[in-house]
Simulated assay, not measured.
Amino acid sequence: MNINQSEKLAEILKLARSVGWGAADILSSYYHGGDKEDQLDVNEDKKDGPVTTADLEANHYILNKLQAELGTEEFGYLSEETFDVKKAEPVANDWVWIIDPLDGTRDFIDKTGEYCLHIALAYQGRPVIAIVAIPEAGKLYYASKGNGTFVETRDGQITPIKVSDRSTPEELYLIVSRSHRDERFQKLIDALPLKGKKYMGSVGGKISTILEQESDVYISLSGKSAAKDWDFAAPELILTEAGGKFTYETGEPVFYNQGDVKKWGCLIATNGHCHELLCEKAAAILKQIDSE
């Protein structure tokens, strides 16, 4: 498939939206199934965090639907639940689906409602189609390269969506997790000259608050571990197509399916209006922190 086949890409986006809603329904059915342990079937042994039956069922559904329609010859598949992180080998296709069937597993288990799912299609390492569905909000955000970002509700209503126009650091709100902050990260966000902090679980959930103009800045800083391709590929595109920016603090873009799926370093997502300034400030603050 050619990257310039806009009609074909529009068909694939329509398929991805349908698959996103179907997977959202699976997650929601488990989420509302009650508090019985066997309904969640939590496996705490996974090194990178717990896995639930909902993870696996949603993953199975997404892969089956996409592969049934698109096959496996032209399209590769990089999913959190099936990718071998230890091998760290890129999927050998130009077109690769990058899938997180349940982003925010801890939020799912703890019943905060702040979980979501990510489906992205990347071409040569950069996302061109993205779905972020938030089941408990009844919303599905979607984007395709060059065509903007939209939010779809369960009743089928579709609305274009844009980031805020707040344009100085002192006006901006940072979106962070309620926990998961090591000392280095805490020092960084405390030193940034932002207006305030807001809280949300899951990466997709955090980026959705920037789209909804509730916040403006999200930062990922690796420590002992790092976020992975499937955490960022879909959220990046829905943000950038809504007018935001998403880069390393150096200003470099993020490439996916490079072998090592772990995204080490500092990545910054903003509403775009003073992105470069915030990157410079973050880099300077980290340099100071690391020299102490």
Results as ranks from 00 to 15, higher is better:
200 M>K: 13
268 I>Y: 03
117 L>Q: 12
105 T>W: 02
82 T>R: 12
264 W>M: 03
249 E>P: 00
222 S>R: 00
25 D>I: 01
71 G>C: 04
290 D>S: 06
167 S>Q: 09
144 S>E: 12
99 I>V: 15
143 A>Y: 11
47 K>W: 03
18 S>L: 12
152 E>C: 13
58 A>C: 10
239 L>Y: 04
71 G>H: 00
53 T>C: 07
201 G>T: 05
25 D>Q: 14
120 A>F: 13
220 S>R: 02
95 W>P: 13
291 S>R: 10
57 E>V: 09
168 T>N: 10
264 W>C: 00
238 I>H: 05
190 D>I: 02
203 V>L: 01
234 A>E: 03
237 L>S: 07
164 S>C: 04
163 V>A: 02
230 W>E: 00
102 L>Q: 09
139 K>Y: 11
95 W>S: 04
142 Y>M: 12
106 R>P: 00
107 D>S: 14
271 N>V: 08
197 K>R: 15
213 Q>N: 13
259 G>V: 01
68 A>Y: 04
275 H>N: 02
65 K>I: 10
279 C>D: 05
6 S>C: 06
118 H>K: 03
198 K>Q: 12
218 Y>T: 01
16 A>Y: 11
152 E>L: 14
163 V>M: 05
18 S>T: 15
104 G>A: 04
186 Q>M: 08
49 G>D: 01
217 V>C: 11
46 K>W: 09
167 S>V: 04
1 M>W: 06
136 E>P: 13
251 G>W: 11
246 F>V: 06
220 S>T: 10
148 G>T: 07
281 K>N: 08
135 P>H: 12
49 G>L: 02
280 E>C: 03
223 G>P: 01
279 C>M: 11
173 Y>Q: 08
83 F>C: 03
6 S>A: 14
216 D>W: 03
190 D>A: 12
274 C>M: 03
256 Y>Q: 05
1 M>H: 06
280 E>T: 14
145 K>I: 09
147 N>Q: 15
169 P>S: 07
124 Q>K: 15
135 P>Y: 13
241 E>P: 12
81 E>L: 09
104 G>L: 02
117 L>Y: 11
264 W>N: 02
113 G>N: 10
148 G>F: 07
25 D>E: 15
84 D>N: 15
7 E>F: 09
48 D>M: 05
157 Q>C: 12
230 W>P: 05
239 L>S: 01
43 N>M: 11
42 V>A: 11
286 L>F: 04
225 S>C: 00
59 N>F: 06
246 F>L: 03
121 L>V: 12
160 P>D: 09
7 E>C: 02
150 F>K: 13
185 F>V: 00
146 G>Q: 11
270 T>G: 04
233 A>Q: 03
120 A>T: 13
91 V>N: 05
119 I>Q: 10
151 V>Y: 08
204 G>D: 01
83 F>A: 06
71 G>R: 00
98 I>Y: 07
79 S>L: 10
90 P>Q: 08
186 Q>H: 10
106 R>G: 00
